[in-house]
Every structure is written in C-alpha cells, then in structure tokens.
Amino acid sequence: MDSIHDLGGMDGFGPVRPEHDEPVFHEKWEGSVLGLQRSILYLGLWNIDVFRHAQERIRPNEYLSWSYYERWTHTLIATALERGLFSDEEFRSGIADAVSSSAPLVPLTSRDTDKAFVRGNFEREGMGEPRFCVGDMVITKELRITGHTRLPRYARDKIGTIIAIRGRHVFPDAVVSHGKEDPQWLYTVEFEGSEIWGEAVDSTVSNLIDAFEPYLLRPEYD
C-alpha cells in the first residue's frame, strides 16, 4: 500500500540528527517491546511481513508522531487481536479465558533464546530458472497494490540493470495477501540516479533495490 512508511524521495523532514553515544534502548519498556516482538514471532503464527504490513496500516499522522517502539507496541497489540492470539476482554482484564480457543503453541523460553537471535532464512528451494540474468536491463512495474509490497514508490516504472541474483525467496506480497510463501526469484537492481531523480541528482549517484521477479518486466517484450 502507498502510505507514509514508503518514505524514499520525500522532502521536508529536516536534517538527520544523529545522537551521540546513543543507548541501545532509551527506556526500559522499549527493551520489553523488542523481547515481546521476538517472542511473538517465534510462535510462528505470522511472519515479519505481516508485522511490517500492520505498521504500514498505522494512520500517517500517527506513524510520524509515534516513536519507533510505540509503533511496534501498537502493531503487536493490533495484530494479536486481529489474529485472535487473545481477545479484547482478555487484553483489558489481563486474565486468560479458562477455555482458550487457540491451538497449543510452543513459547520461546530462556533455554532456547539463541534460536531467536539468528535471522530466519527466507530462501526456498524449488523448480524453475530465473527469468533474468545479471546484466539484463529491466523495467520495474507501475504497481498499485493496496496490500503489502516491497517495491518502493520511487523505484516504480524505472529502467535499471540486474546486478545480482539472490535466489528464490518468500514473496512478501503473497504472504500478506493470501498467506502463502509463493517464492519468487530475487534480484538486486541498479538504477542510474538520473533515471529516478532527473537532474536533481548528480551523475555519480545510483540507487539499488532488491526486487522480486513479479516486480520486473523486460523492456523489449513486456
């Protein structure tokens, strides 16, 4: 969906202000939110794409005014309610219903937190060859997706060159739209800065994205 999370190429947010000697967490509750997020993802009921899409659905004014971990808190609660991890009543009271509808889940325990620290592998084995080769010129689609996509607005309908093939990966758009991994070939595509930004950018700049095969067309054929 084309909401405020897709920030690339916007103006008006002012200068970047790096914080000197920034702590890992500014407040204790931020660490709890991170711990809760890792623990909830570990349950395996939904993946990171679902979590990201829930953040994308935060209203733009709130997305910009909330801190990062405030957004996470909102997203974790909203997704847990939406997916029935607990009910409104349970959340309000803090007391689990005696009869729980949820299937038995294996929680993350302190014995195996190490498992939660290594990033999951999103590459999937499968049949079929990639449609594009390194060096191929491609054009990105002019997408209008109301669900989830990882093709940023600034890189749509632009001509670029494939510089690497990264394997067949879980397709985020499909995970969110119909709960299927639907693995797709993933490529790194490089665009001349001028192709995207026109004369606003000097000729030394290029932009690179990782693009799934369904985002890409062959200029001379498609």
Partner: peptide, 8 residues
C-alpha cells in the same frame, strides 16, 4: 496477557 496465556 501473553504471560498469563503461556505464550511468552
């Protein structure tokens, strides 16, 4: 609520 449901 997550602790009381045994989920975390």
């Amino acid at each position: 609520i997550l602790v009381s449901k045994g989920l975390v």
